[in-house]
Structure formats: C-alpha cells, structure tokens
Write a protein that binds this DNA or RNA. Sequence first.
DNA 1: GCGTCATTTGAACAACGTTCAAAACATATC
DNA 2: GATATGTTTTGAACGTTGTTCAAATGACGC
Lengths: 213, 213
Amino acid sequence: MARVEKRGTGPRGEHNRDEFLALVTKAAENLVRREGLRGLGMRRLASTIGYAPNSIYNAVGDLDAVMMRVNARTLARLHAALESAVTPDAAPRDKALALADAYLGFVAADPQVWSLVFEHQIAPDSPFPDWYAEALGQTTDLVARVLAPIIPDPDERRQAVAALWAALHGLASLSTSRKLAVLTPESPRDLARLLVRRFLDGPDRGRPETAGA
Amino acid sequence: MARVEKRGTGPRGEHNRDEFLALVTKAAENLVRREGLRGLGMRRLASTIGYAPNSIYNAVGDLDAVMMRVNARTLARLHAALESAVTPDAAPRDKALALADAYLGFVAADPQVWSLVFEHQIAPDSPFPDWYAEALGQTTDLVARVLAPIIPDPDERRQAVAALWAALHGLASLSTSRKLAVLTPESPRDLARLLVRRFLDGPDRGRPETAGA
DNA sequence: GCGTCATTTGAACAACGTTCAAAACATATC
DNA sequence: GATATGTTTTGAACGTTGTTCAAATGACGC
C-alpha cells in the first residue's frame, strides 16, 4: 500500500502570524514595485514566498486585502518622508515648498508602489476604510500645521490644504502615467513649486525662493 | 445525416466597418458608465451587441484597443464641453474659472467614463499614442488661449497651464474615488475655484467673483 | 460557376481569483 | 502515553477571464 498522496503538510513553524503578514506585504510590495499593479497576482505572490495561495487567504484575505496592507504601509512611509522634510525653523512658505518637494520626491522614487494607493479603487458600496482616512488625515494634518501661521482661519485652511493636496496628487498622478511630459518638459517638482508659490504668494513674484536674501 | 454543426455564419451585412466601430465603442462606453472599468469585459461587451468576441478582435482589436477608442471619444467630448463654456467677452480670469467649472462639471456628470481615461494605463514600453497627445494638446491649448492675456510669456504660460491642468485633474481624480470627501466637505468645484482664483489673483482676495462690481 | 477575400463563429487554451476538503503539525486534556 | 481539538498548509477543482485557432459562411470579381 504505497501512500503516494500527500495533501496538507501542516504548520511549518517558520513564521508566526505577524511575521507572515509582513512577509506577504513586503513580497507584494516588491512585486508591485517591479511590475506594477498588473504584476501582483495571487498565485504569483504565493510562489515568490514559497507558500500555496490558500495560506495567504487564511492569514491575510483576498487580493484586495493584500493591496490594502501594501497601501497602508505606503501611506505610513509617505508620512515619515514628509515629516522628516520640514525643517523646524523655516518660514511657513518654505516649509510648504519643502513638503511639496518631498511628496514628489517620494513619488518619483517609488512610482509604482505609490500609484497602487490610487489605482486600487475599493468597491463602491463598502464604506471607506477607517485606517485609510486616518493615515490620510495624519498626513494632511502635517500640511495644515505648516500652513497655520499664514492661513489662520480653520475653514479657509482646511480648504487650502485639500486643494493643494489634490493639486500635488494630480501632478504626481499625471507624472507617473507619463501624461505630464506631453504637456511640458518641466519636472513635476518645478511645477509643484510654481503651484505652491503662486497659491501662497500670488502671481506677482519672480524667481527668488525666499523673500529675504 | 443531420448536419447539426453550424460554425461561422459569415458576414451579416448589417454594419460596415465604421458603423461597427461606433457600435462597439458606444456599447463599451455604456458598460463603463454603468459599472466602471471592471464592468468592461470582452465577452460581456460582445454579448451586449449580439456578436461573438472574435468579431471585436477582428474589427477593433483587444480590450486595450477598445478602451483607447472610448478614451478618444471621452477626450473629444470633454474638449467640446470646455469649448462651449468660455463666453467670448469675459475677463480672462472669469474664463479660466468657467473652464475649471466646466471641467469638474463634466467629470461629475460622467465620472466612470472620465476615470477610464486615467485608470487605463498603457504598456510602459510602447510609445505614447499620438492621438492622445493631440487630443490633450487641443484641450490644453484652449486653456492656454484663455490665459494668454494675463500670462504673456509663453514659457511661463505653458508651465501655468500644465500646473493648473494637473491640479484640476487631481481634484477630479480624488473626487471620483471618494478620497476628497474625507478631507473636506466642500465640493470639488468650489475647491477648483479657490485654486484657480488664488493661482491667478493671489491670496489677498475675498469672496467676490469679479473685481469690478 | 468559381475562386478570393473578409466576416463571423464555436471551440479550445492558458491563466486567473477563489473555494473545498483533506492531511499534517501543534497543543491541550485525560 | 494516548486521544481529542484546533490551526496551518496544501492539491485539486470551479468558474471566469482574455485571447487564439481553424472552420464555415456570405459577398464579390471574373
């Protein structure tokens, strides 16, 4: 009686649950980084970490859940990048310019992974994931705090933050999809600087970065 | 000998090639309008027009080609909408505001179809489709002509057009994916007005829409 | 009437996301 | 030590997808 069939090998004891979650998330992130959204498939992801697809379903969930985890990580990384970009003792205007620069720098350094945050659209019926709103709020609060000294009114400030955030998103989005280079040869960073500068200072301003020499 | 098998019915003579192209494009557009990018599948598209999938492959090409045709139509419709929004005898500033309003109005009226233009990213190796660059150039030229009186320098104007275009795109994009409502309750149109106004007039301006009463 | 060509189609192929049920390990209980 | 319980892991299967193949049909030139 040769027992040829062998199905279900049981736990390996190589990773606990949290380690496995991190393993899956990082592998998925690397797949997206190298080949974009289309390169992230369930079977492929499973094979790169040496597990069967079903193990991912058990520990993480379906592909949407995997992307959510990658996106959560991306937003956290973006937040950290922006946080380390604001120099404490600088004019609010220059802090805002530094933030815009850091944003577009982050996107330029990791375009595919950043794109996943916006390419992956969630089902239209389910409510917005709370962790996303929270992660986004943390980042935009960073911008709001920077703009507070020059836009005192909270309502006006909130509108300005949303408008500037969306504008930067648009620049980054068109840039990664190569739809910006068709319009102008300038880098998205230069355009972001122009946008923030004119938004905060108005159109009657020349080249210099700071008012005081 | 009952000849039950019947494969390949030959030409129907119901549509010539151009009519068939239009039929496929409009059917695909309606599918996207109702159910978004994910609702557009080859087999489904074929069944809604009463043909076999292979007929679409023959006349149009694969799904990418179908989306391209839908997107070309969308850009043309957007161009027409923007063109009819500029009143000939108005201040450039107000023309720009009207353009922004018309843009976001178009997106709000047809969000899924508009989103397809940016959700569908082309293969990274193939060069940019020329029809897309041309359609985009026509539309941005519209903006450039409007801004010409207040931004005389061509280089500066081109940068301003690209920056404003990207900013509007960002507002529209975050709006359709419900990522803007998380930040602020204002409508994207209001934020667009704020953005354009501050970009053109500077921050030192209150509510009134026009300078002269 | 006969070939030639484009049109249309069912069937097949490979791949995908996901689910099912069985097997193996780890751990608690007696 | 043996037995039961629960979690982890897996091969196999299901249904669907985009796409290709080869055959069959209609229309048109000669």
